[in-house]
Every structure is written in structure tokens, then in C-alpha cells.
């Protein structure tokens, strides 16, 4: 492009010269257009290598994930003996083990149950709380709102002991609801913050117009308000899902067998015959998939979610 562009520009300036009005203004314009053409040529050379850095970055980023997928299709013998960039004898044995052995697949089922429970509880508790923070002024509202977020600042390990003691006295240990409730400790504040941001983006006059039209509060909230902040609810649910899905410490401490999460199962696979690398890799791949699926649905709102709805 640059060559033909420069030729065309020269042609244009030639015609300008011939046009008779070839005063100093035209000369200046000509000089300017040549400068622009030069700059464009230089930028063209630079652009030829501009793909390099992102490509390297993406390769570095994707390498562990690729290696995990690679391993999950190999036999243990191949993993341990040779270095191969792709499976020499591709096998589905590792996945077959996971889908047939209850010790493995129940881990997924347990995780999904408590994560879903937690998401539902967190969002439904956070919705009215966020509405109150967004619409009403009350004594200490700002302090309370900030204090909520500080709950996220303590490492979960701090809460493991009190939860263990509390839940064992209520007989909740090794139940899905125990993990779901424990995760609420840091998911509810997060959901409140995200939802408050989205709700504050809806003008208060819409609420009032609805009341004037005769809507009762619950009806307004469900029929008018929730559709308006649907993307916010989606993002809040996604963040609750994600944090609950990756959290290991509390989930492991509060369960033993019947509600054991997949991540805990993965860390307990050392058998008499040593580690089963292939199965472990397959389990890893399957653990990534739900997150990737969920993130796909809220991909357009994630940035706003990370800014806690305040963009």
C-alpha cells in the first residue's frame, strides 16, 4: 500500500503544481504530505513485527494448559518415559476412568452441587441488600458497605477453624450446604458490591414511576428491576461460581467423603502404584471446563464485573 500511496500523493501534488496556484501554501502542503507518507512507510515496517510480542505472550500463557490437555491423552508410560509435544498413542483411557469410577465423578457432582447452592444463596441474599445500599441512606450505611468488602481481605484459612467447630456441633460436617454456607462468607459481600454498582446505574425515577403506576415493591422488583440489572446478576453469579469453584481449603476442611469436592479428590490420588498422571491431567482438564463455559455467557460484562459494576 505504502508504495502506491506515495505515488498517488506525488501525482496529486504534481497536479497541484500545474494548477497554477503553486504558491508557498502548496509547497508547504506538499512537504507535509511527504512527511506523512514517510511516517506511514516507517509505521508499516514496525507493524510487520507487531504480532510477535502478543504471540509470545499467548504461547507462554497457553503452554501449561496445552501441556495438561496433552498429558490427559497420553498413557502413564509415555508421560514418564519420553518427551513428546503431542500424544504418540492418543488414548481416552484417562477420561474413561473418571467417568466410570464413582470416586472420581462424584467429586464433580459434589463440587457442582455446593457451588450452585452457594451461587443461588449468595445472589438471592445479595439482591435485597444491594438494593438497600443503592437506594436508601441509613445510619452507618457507608461503613457497613465497606466492612462487607473487608470480609474478603482475610485468608479463608482464618475461618477454617471456627467453621469446623461450629459445623461439627450442628452436625453439618460433610454436607453440601456446609461448604455452600461457608463460601457465602466471601461471596455475599462480593455479590452485594457488584449488584450495588449495577443497581446504582438504574435511575431512582424508574422505581418511583413504577410505584406511581401502582406496582407493589415485590412486583416492581421482579418484573421491572431485575430485568434491568440482569447482566449484573449474571456477573455476580459468575463471580460467586468462580470463587466457590476454585476455593479448596474450606471445601476440603468441611468435608470428608460424601461431599468431597473434585479438587480434594485430585490431591488424594496417590495410590500404591504411585501417581496416576494421566487421570490426574484429565481431571484437571474437566475442572477447567465449567469455568470456561460460565465465563462465555457473561463475557461482555466481565470487565464491568471486575470494576464491581461501576463503569
Amino acid at each position: 500500500m505504502t508504495d502506491s500511496g506515495a505515488t498517488r500523493m506525488t501525482a496529486v501534488s504534481d497536479s497541484l503544481m500545474r494548477g497554477g496556484a503553486a504558491g508557498s501554501a502548496t509547497m508547504a502542503a506538499l512537504g507535509q504530505s511527504e512527511a506523512i507518507a514517510r511516517r506511514m512507510r516507517r509505521r508499516g515496517r514496525e507493524a510487520r513485527f507487531s504480532w510477535l510480542v502478543p504471540t509470545i505472550y499467548i504461547i507462554v500463557l497457553m503452554l501449561p494448559i496445552y501441556w495438561l490437555i496433552n498429558m490427559s491423552f497420553k498413557t502413564n508410560a509415555e508421560i514418564l518415559s519420553t518427551f513428546s509435544l503431542w500424544p504418540q498413542n492418543p488414548t481416552l483411557r484417562n477420561y474413561a476412568i473418571i467417568f466410570s469410577d464413582p470416586a472420581w465423578y462424584s467429586g464433580y457432582i459434589n463440587s457442582i452441587i455446593y457451588v450452585s447452592l452457594n451461587t443461588v444463596i449468595s445472589v438471592s441474599v445479595a439482591l435485597p441488600a444491594a438494593y438497600a445500599f443503592s437506594r436508601y441512606r441509613f445510619l452507618g450505611d457507608k461503613h457497613l458497605f465497606f466492612w462487607l468488602l473487608t470480609n474478603r481481605m482475610a485468608p479463608p484459612a482464618v475461618f477454617a477453624l471456627p467453621f469446623l467447630q461450629l459445623y461439627s456441633s450442628f452436625g453439618l460436617i460433610d454436607t453440601h450446604i456446609a461448604v455452600a454456607l461457608a463460601h457465602c462468607l466471601f461471596n455475599v459481600p462480593l455479590a452485594v458490591w457488584i449488584l450495588e454498582g449495577f443497581m446504582s446505574g438504574v435511575p431512582k425515577e424508574i422505581d418511583e414511576t413504577a410505584y406511581i403506576d401502582g406496582y407493589s415493591f415485590p412486583r416492581f422488583f421482579v418484573k421491572i428491576f431485575m430485568p434491568l440489572i440482569a447482566s449484573g446478576i449474571g456477573v455476580a453469579a459468575f463471580f460467586c461460581f468462580m470463587f466457590s469453584w476454585v476455593e479448596l481449603l474450606l471445601a476440603r476442611t468441611l468435608t470428608t467423603t460424601s461431599a468431597k469436592p473434585i479438587a480434594a479428590t485430585m490431591t488424594r490420588t496417590v495410590s500404591a502404584s504411585g501417581l496416576d498422571w494421566g487421570v490426574l491431567a484429565a481431571a484437571g482438564v474437566l475442572t477447567i471446563i465449567p469455568g470456561a463455559l460460565v465465563i462465555y455467557f457473561v463475557r461482555n460484562y466481565i470487565a464491568k464485573g471486575f470494576a464491581l459494576g461501576r463503569v
Binding site: P203, Y211, I212, L228
Partner: peptide, 21 residues
Amino acid sequence: VSVQKRDVAMVYQQFINYPNM
């Protein structure tokens, strides 16, 4: 008496409608 039970209609300076309807 709450606004729902009053016989009132109101239009604001800002254009307020239900965006999802």
C-alpha cells in the same frame, strides 16, 4: 398514604420509561 394507593400520574424532566418493555 403510599404512592401506589394514590390517584396520581407523574412525568419527570428526564425521560423515564421501562427500558426492558
